[in-house]
């Protein structure tokens, strides 16, 4: 699984970070950082959930 974020859509609300802090981090500079572009199996459910719940639909998951 590869995590791709469309930064034109992302508004740094940290919804994804609330769900999968291992993978997404919104820092004090108010930018989103993807900590783990290829998260391991164990994180896939969380990452899928984060992608679903991103209100801007900014997260794409590639196989």
């Amino acid at each position: 699984m590869k995590v791709v974020v469309d930064f034109d859509l992302c508004e740094s609300n940290a919804v994804c970070m609330e769900i999968a802090p291992e993978v997404f981090e919104v820092r004090d500079d108010d930018f989103l950082y993807v900590l783990e572009e290829n998260p391991g199996e164990a994180l896939h459910d969380k990452v899928r959930d984060a992608a679903d719940r991103c209100p801007k639909q900014a997260i794409t998951l590639e196989d």
Partner: peptide
Amino acid sequence: RPRHAIKGRQ
């Protein structure tokens, strides 16, 4: 302050 809403929700 989009982050505040989510923090507030938490």
